[in-house]
C-alpha cells in the first residue's frame, strides 16, 4: 500500500517534468533528454485532476496550478473545489496558508513523501534506475508526441496498483493511474511553460517549513 502510494507520488511529480524524460529504447534520444532535463530550473503548469473512486457517487474533479522547481520540489495549488497550497519537498508535504505559513496538520510530515522527492531528483540527474526497478516501461510515438505505459513489476506494488499511462509532447500532458481496486485518477496538464528561475514568492514557500 505504502509502496503504491510512493510510486503514485513519484509519478505525480513527473507530471511537471519536461517530456522526453522517458523516451526509451534509443540511447541517443535518452542522452538528449537527460541533457534537456538538467536545463530548466522551473516549470509552471495548470492541472485538472479527476478521481473516480468506489466510495464516491461521482468523480471528484479539482483544478489548480503547479510550479515544479528542479532543486526544491513542487508547489501544488488547488483553486477548486477549495483553495489550498501544498509544498512538496524532501522534507515531506506541508500545507501552507495564504500568508505562506505552515498549517499545523499532523505532528510530522507524512513519511515517504520526502523519499519520493529525493527519488525524483535522482531521476532528474539522469538516474532512472529506481523507476525501472519498479516498473516495466513501454513507450511509443515520437519525442513530439509519445505515450508510455508503466506496469508494476513487483508483486507488492501490483497488489494495489494496476498501471499508469503517461502521454505528452514537449511536456507531460496526461497521466492516468489505475489501482487494483478499480479507482482511477486522471490528471491533465495544460499551459506548461519553462521558467527562467524560481519566482521569489515560490522560493519563500519552500522556506516555510
Amino acid at each position: 500500500m505504502n509502496r503504491t502510494r510512493r510510486a503514485l507520488m513519484a509519478l505525480t511529480l513527473f507530471a511537471a517534468l519536461p517530456a522526453g524524460a522517458f523516451a526509451q529504447g534509443e540511447p541517443a534520444l535518452v542522452n538528449q533528454i537527460a541533457a534537456r532535463l538538467a536545463r530548466p530550473l522551473a516549470v509552471r503548469a495548470r492541472f485538472t485532476q479527476t478521481q473516480t473512486l468506489a466510495a464516491m457517487k461521482a468523480p471528484l474533479v479539482s483544478h489548480g496550478s503547479l510550479v515544479f522547481a528542479r532543486d526544491q520540489g513542487v508547489i501544488w495549488r488547488i483553486d477548486d473545489p477549495y483553495r489550498a497550497t501544498y509544498v512538496i519537498s524532501d522534507a515531506g508535504v506541508v500545507e501552507v496558508n495564504a500568508g505562506g505559513q505552515r498549517v499545523q496538520r499532523g505532528t510530522r510530515p507524512p513519511a515517504g513523501v520526502g523519499q519520493v522527492s529525493k527519488m525524483m531528483r535522482s531521476m532528474l540527474a539522469g538516474d532512472l534506475s529506481s523507476l525501472y526497478s519498479q516498473f516495466d516501461v513501454k513507450a511509443s510515438g515520437t519525442p513530439e508526441h509519445w505515450t508510455m505505459q508503466l506496469t508494476p513489476n513487483q508483486p507488492q506494488i501490483a497488489q494495489a496498483l494496476k498501471g499508469l499511462t503517461l502521454e505528452g509532447g514537449a511536456y507531460l500532458t496526461n497521466l492516468q493511474l489505475s489501482t487494483a481496486s478499480g479507482d482511477v485518477t486522471r490528471m491533465e496538464f495544460t499551459g506548461s511553460t519553462t521558467l527562467d528561475g524560481l519566482p521569489a514568492a515560490e522560493r519563500a514557500l519552500f522556506g516555510a517549513h
Binding site: L53, A55, M56, W76, P81, Y82, Y86, P110
Partner: peptide
C-alpha cells in the same frame, strides 16, 4: 467539510494509507 475536502483532494498522502470508506 473542510476536513473531508482535504482528505479527498490533497496531493501526496504519505505513510500508511487507510481505505476512504473506513476513514472518510
Amino acid at each position: 467539510s473542510d476536513a473531508l475536502a482535504r482528505r479527498l483532494y490533497a496531493p501526496m498522502r504519505g505513510g500508511l494509507a487507510t481505505r476512504l470508506a473506513d476513514d472518510p
